[in-house]
Design a binder for these strands. Structure first.
Lengths: 156, 156
DNA sequence: AATGAAAACCCCTCTTT
DNA sequence: AAAGAGGGGTTTTCATT
């Protein structure tokens, strides 16, 4: 038998139904969930508390739609560093750049891999210039998203 | 004067304070926000409703922590298609693959760019095999995230 | 746009099985 | 692990400025 550390928290079908409803809308009421899954609101509440304590369900956040406030360009940027040892300094500098919403230390071609949101292509150029001036950055490679056809959370 | 279509919905400082609180925690109560920004709960409520109707604030969702249910590998995969015309068929097929959480039609090297969540490297290999069998796919290139150092929403 | 008050609803705890 | 009942807080509406 595998341990929970390896396989993760075990979700039964009721847990999954609850989680999917909350993943779709964090403000779904207990009574609504209760009617859907067929157990009392108290039971739903107990399960959610357990899932939160286990860390399976994390915080809930509201989304700001970047497009609606004028941010229309989504891009991914691969960053080459001259030395991987510059990674931590680079991340520190990247945190100061609001347009950078994700940063990963990756295997493969790049040292750091970014997701960047910009208003338009001129704005993206500005950000690219800023990135290329960071210490240790030798080169960048940019992929602009022309259309995001899938955007969702994991289904298990 | 620029139109709202170009510049987006205009957010005043109070709107921004409200949005940042909700972006941090979707369940922040109106009374808590009210105390923080210095207007009544009703006024906060009215502003949130306006922002929701304008689409600036989108749905709020709860996060499932993939790691806690055994999904420990985050990767980005660039997909080469023999013909861009196969894009829509490919997206349709990709939607059936639960592990694919983002798909973008991009400029640059790749035709399609994916974010994929897997349990482990063996699981990732399975997914890569599956992707390479899709019609029109000639080659893939994978970046595994060893560490995600930034993960946040846009700040404006 | 903002306010206070009232109504409706919801979360959460307690007790019990 | 689940259920019902009750108190306290929250959202939502309404009338007013």
């Amino acid at each position: 038998m595998k341990s929970a550390v390896e396989t993760g928290y075990h979700l039964d079908s009721v847990d999954k139904e609850i989680i999917y409803m909350l993943m779709d809308n964090a403000k779904t009421s207990l009574s609504h969930i209760s009617k859907n899954v067929g157990i009392s609101t108290t039971a739903v509440h107990q399960r959610i508390k357990k899932l939160e304590q286990a860390g399976v369900i994390e915080n809930s956040i509201s989304f700001l739609n970047p497009r609606k406030i004028g941010y229309k360009v989504v891009s991914y940027i691969g960053v080459f560093l001259d030395q991987p040892s510059h990674y931590h300094d680079a991340v520190k500098a990247l945190k100061e750049v609001n347009e950078v919403v994700e940063a990963h230390y990756t295997t493969g071609n790049y040292t750091i891999f970014l997701k960047v949101l910009c208003r338009d292509n001129d704005h993206l150029m500005e950000i690219l210039n800023k990135l290329q001036k960071l210490k240790g950055v030798t080169r960048t490679e940019t992929f602009i998203s022309l259309e995001q056809s899938i955007n969702r959370q994991l289904k298990v």
